[in-house]
């Protein structure tokens, strides 16, 4: 399973949806994931990839991690995983 599929599986699990229902242009809002669900998803992502995601719930837009869409989350995780390997 590549990074994209793994992230989608985590988000789908949080949204109680099938992975096939989560598309790259979905937003957390449209998937029905609230602020607690978001914090849990980030925790699951950190555990799955053994990375540390820079995210502050007080100001998601100012965090270094873009959560606006599933695609941006996947891109962020890919970057963090690459940085961790280098």
């Amino acid at each position: 399973m590549d990074i994209k599929d793994k992230v989608i599986a985590i988000i789908a699990d949080q949204a109680v949806l099938e992975p096939s229902d989560v598309t790259l242009d979905s937003t957390l809002d449209t998937l029905g994931i609230d602020s607690l669900g978001l914090v849990e998803s980030i925790f699951a992502i950190e555990e799955a990839f053994d990375i540390s995601v820079p995210f502050n719930a007080n100001d998601p837009s100012e965090s270094d991690f873009d959560i606006s869409t599933v695609a941006s989350i996947v891109a962020g995780v890919e970057r963090l995983v690459a940085e961790q390997k280098s």
Partner: peptide, 20 residues
């Protein structure tokens, strides 16, 4: 820390740039 509501630099209540 787990809840991600903590500030790393200061407590700035009511300020637009508050971060936890």
């Amino acid at each position: 820390e787990g809840l991600r509501v903590m500030s790393k630099d200061a407590c700035r209540p009511f300020s637009a740039n508050r971060n936890g």
